[in-house]
Design a protein around this nucleic acid. Structure first.
Lengths: 252, 252
DNA sequence: GGAGCCAACTTGTTCAGACAAGTGAACCCA
DNA sequence: TGGGTTCACTTGTCTGAACAAGTTGGCTCC
């Protein structure tokens, strides 16, 4: 996105407005200039301006109703897709030190759920990885990931203290994640969780299960990440026109 | 949305495509017809078709890359904003029985955080509500909500077993929620939580704190909802062009 | 002063056309 | 057979125009 912000007109306009909101020049509750104002100011068509404000609306920064001027809703930047999918990238963007270790990497046939999530034939051999993540030296998250067969070799070849598997996959094999789906719930720590995170068995954990897929929709990994309670919070904003979040009945 | 699906062209097209995906007629991984195909088939302009597919992309149902045909990513409906904001509406949409009781309703000055979240002057009197929610007769969620002063009277007047505060507010006072922000984390059950949910103290809870606001961005309520572990899962999908989910460092 | 109406303004929807940029498959050539 | 090139196709970006629909503030009238 930032690479195009200088050449693509609507991203340029969106970035300028975003800066005004983040800087406080357009405070929360303020009205944005009208579309025709912006169109004149940037000498762009109204369609291009609408695309710019639609971008900000999708980020949850502004809201709109037919007939009334757009208003500023929040004043917080949203993290990028890469930062959500990469623990290391996210932590470093916030100025924290991130470290991690592969505790085990073994090949085994996929379970029924893994095969389903990874869109593989039942019993296909996947790479199962157990990994401990540290934030500023503190054990923060236990990650259990199943990598699809076609990336298994690349992941096996990575060093034990590899900072970001997704970054390495992207650089080494050109495999880039474009889509993700996340399931978030809470559960008590099992004995392995407790030992690794240095907490008592049964302590609350925040679990984020997610599948990452390429631009063609091919699943890359299916992961079960368990965070120590209090270490992270997930945040999502929605509106009557865009509801990215969904609540489901228990699904263990 | 469904009210306009018959009259607004792009929603009509989006709804038809959504049905084809949900029914499996367009299976996961399949290519959508090209924009010009769809435009011809519906005798609409390409712009209108693009708005239709943008709707589905925002729902996470389809993905797209420049130059290549769009592909089907998932086959699940996304729930509406109302269903996310209203526990009762959500449960009933899934065929579950929802019940609830006000355990207490008291007026008191807002705490610093409540005043901030509700955009009120510090110390403004709010209505603090404690509520227990049952799903199919099982105690499932404890809700602690602070209602802004300007809706307090309406909420106080509601019956003790009111099914949905937001629905009643909408019908009685014309106050409708348009925007929401949600913070999701895990924490151990306190003694009050444990007693109400009939679990042991320290058991894992999934917490969803959220603020709801009107179409003009005016906050209505700030709520702390605690779900028994295993009873619900939150789900969110994202892509490199749209990232509604954000991860934050601990924030108790 | 208060209720209701109206007109200017603003966002929502739709159209038709144009060019840029990326994809994928057929094709050719070594 | 393998590798590169070309080309039709598809999505991305942008324009200018028109009308529909909802909001807001000011005005009139009582």
């Amino acid at each position: 996105m930032s690479t195009n912000a200088g050449t693509v007109r609507y991203l340029e306009i969106a970035e300028a407005l975003r800066r005004e909101i983040l800087s406080g020049e357009l405070p929360v509750g303020a009205h944005l200039p009208s579309e025709s104002d912006l169109a004149a100011r940037w000498s762009a068509s109204r369609g291009t301006v609408r695309q710019a404000v639609a971008t900000l609306a999708a980020e949850g920064l502004i809201g709109s109703r037919q007939g009334a001027r757009r208003i500023v809703l929040r004043r917080e930047r949203r993290h990028s897709f890469g930062e959500l999918n990469s623990f290391a990238q996210w932590a470093e963007g916030l100025g924290h030190r991130a470290a991690s270790r592969f505790l085990s990497r073994t090949r085994r046939p996929a379970t029924a759920e893994e095969a389903d999530r990874l869109a593989l034939a039942p019993g296909t051999e996947i790479l199962a990885v157990l990994r401990l993540r540290l934030l500023d030296g503190e054990p923060t998250m236990v990650e259990r990931t199943a990598y699809a067969d076609w990336v298994a070799a690349a992941v096996e070849a990575m060093p034990v203290d590899c900072r970001s598997v997704m970054d390495s996959l992207s650089e080494g094999s050109g495999v880039v994640a474009h889509y993700g789906e996340h399931l978030i719930d809470a559960l008590p720590a099992g004995s392995e969780d407790a030992r690794l995170l240095e907490i008592r068995r049964g302590s609350p954990l925040l679990r984020q299960r997610h599948v990452s897929a390429t631009a063609t929709g091919r699943p890359i990994e299916w992961s079960d990440d368990r965070y120590r309670a209090g270490s992270v919070t997930f945040s999502v904003s929605n509106s009557s026109v865009a509801t990215p979040l969904e609540r489901r009945v228990g699904d263990q």
